[in-house]
Design a protein around this nucleic acid. Structure first.
Lengths: 316, 316
DNA sequence: TATGATTAGGTCAGAATCAGTCCTAATTAG
DNA sequence: CTAATTAGGACTGATTCTGACCTAATCATA
């Protein structure tokens, strides 16, 4: 380490990879006097790098946070992790500024040692994810504002284009953002509908933060809810089924998102609303505990059909 | 721009974000003489930063790749993309050195401006992925070597511990690496079994590159193959079922990975081997075309049971 | 409360470095 | 061939850096 500049950079590097370092530690590492270390610290601070200090015994220098990012000193390993992360973001169409992804990818790949680059390229070529392709372009600003609102528990005014094309504005308490089956969803409470709702992010046309804040229900699981929302797409058939087993068995056999469960003397009553009775009918045949159908009668009819079909198949 | 150090850093930054820059361009940007620019270039080179130059008209300086990574100058946007990428790697248990992920996360988060950090934290808290948790620890070196072998079409000597605990060594042509249902798999050709095989990465105990190379079949889709492998897990029940419909309908009703299909006068004959007949039995009930069971007789028995169950459910 | 480890910073003199201004050479596209 | 470019030597004066020595301030701990 000769020139002042390399010394400055090594100090920066040391501070970046060690949580904190004392002046004398730095001095001995760089083989210069502690006085000079102090001078270098001042220089770095003058350059806008937010170095802060703790005084007294066990005092030390450490990096604080500033308004600008200081140069990052990273190792080869870290660089490959960073590149891989960026590639995954790209593959999953993460709602991040594409410019940022491409910019940092370019910067990283431009300076990566050849061996490392080859390794990363190999990974890139070899890895596949069973990802549902999402060709939908998302405005990163929407997810940024949404996540901030989630974080701060701030209600939002949202303009949303439903699947049938109708546009509406509603007040919305965002509870979380979920990546599910290739799409991004916002989960939360819709004041207009007075219910939990999920909205596809690429169908949100406008978002506006309000002053109103909300309380996030404890233990709410956004992923579960999306699961739920898909499972219980509003349908015309309300079903009511008695599961003669313990709650534990029910929980193992059915996701909590499958509907509501009520424990009674007769067994667990499972309620739900579906548009198509067939999947439910087949589901009931899977259970290894006694089940009885209360509602709807149509489900019984389907069961009869299934019985006939199965009987027919067992012959011959 | 005052001190030599800031000037060095700005030169580095300019070179990182611009593909190439001439000495005079740099000189005018920094408002110093071209001679000094040349001196700075030398200094950077002495520091191990691989700056290369093109001579002649249209000549310029540009960043080459070295053995060490130079300090990275990134923008706020880029930083948040990087952090997000790392978080995703973490969430998906990507086979990267954990040290690297945590190291770079620490470095980034330590220096990120407060506003940016809040935004990233908000994203981190708000986003959820429906990820199957994978508690299995993977040696990153395995995936690194594997991906290199895929890239270079190099056969591997592999020591693998099967699910039943038996360990074996085999020669393996890796075609790809797939993330599927929470696990990582290597897909390729197994010389010992003389067939395509998938191996769970966390069950590979040893990997050794060989001199032997192979030719990757064109149009091979690793994800499809893993899909396939799961569907046709070797089981003790060979099944043979006649589907009395068109091939098109079969393709819509069943994934190509579900087994083999043979078109005959009687219909499509579907063959497959399964360990558990129940899922197949339920599947057959779903079809809206005539089906008849040829093999095995046990499946008929199960059908009878299902018929009884369905009939029972339809009553009451 | 006293002590010692630590950051903070002033001052000074000599050494080292830097910047600009001249040069000249080598390279290369047109 | 010509012009633009990198490469770099030599010189000088200005600037900066360094270490040594000093004093304050701060703070945890015995």
């Amino acid at each position: 380490m000769y020139s002042p500049t390399t010394r400055l950079l090594t100090i920066l590097e040391l501070l970046q990879s060690h949580r904190q370092l004392s002046g004398s530690q730095l001095a001995s590492r760089l083989e210069i006097s502690p006085r000079s270390i102090r001078r270098y610290i001042v220089m770095l601070q003058d350059m806008g790098i937010p170095i802060e200090a703790e005084r007294g015994p066990d005092g030390a220098y450490y990096l604080g946070r500033g308004v600008k990012l200081p140069p990052l000193m990273i190792t080869n390993q870290e660089a490959s992790a960073l590149v891989l992360g960026l590639l995954v973001l790209q593959a999953f169409h993460f709602p991040v500024e594409l410019v940022a992804i491409e910019g940092s990818l370019a910067k990283l790949e431009r300076v990566m040692p050849a061996a490392l680059l080859e390794q990363v390229r190999a990974l890139q070529a070899a890895l596949s994810f069973n990802v549902v392709a999402t060709p939908t372009a998302l405005q990163p600003s929407i997810i940024a504002r949404l996540s901030l609102a989630v974080h701060k528990s701030q209600s939002l005014n949202m303009r949303y284009i439903a699947l049938n094309g109708t546009e509406s504005t509603r007040l919305f308490d965002p509870y979380g953002i979920v990546y599910y089956q290739g799409f991004w969803y916002a989960v939360g409470y819709c004041h207009t509908r007075r219910d939990l709702r999920t909205f596809r992010l690429d169908r949100i046309s406008e978002l506006q933060a309000t002053e109103q804040s909300f309380v996030q229900p404890v233990g709410f699981d956004p992923v579960q809810h999306v699961h739920n929302a898909f499972a219980t797409m509003p349908g015309q058939y309300p079903i009511e089924i008695v599961l003669e087993t313990s709650m534990i068995n029910v929980q193992q056999a059915l996701p909590p998102a499958a509907g509501s469960f009520e424990a009674t003397d007769a067994g667990i009553i499972w309620r739900r609303e579906v548009a198509d009775l067939w999947p439910t009918a087949l589901l009931l045949l899977k259970f290894d505990f006694p089940v009885s159908i209360r509602q709807p009668p149509e489900l019984r009819a389907i069961m009869q059909q299934l019985a006939a079909k199965a009987l027919h198949l067992s012959k011959e």
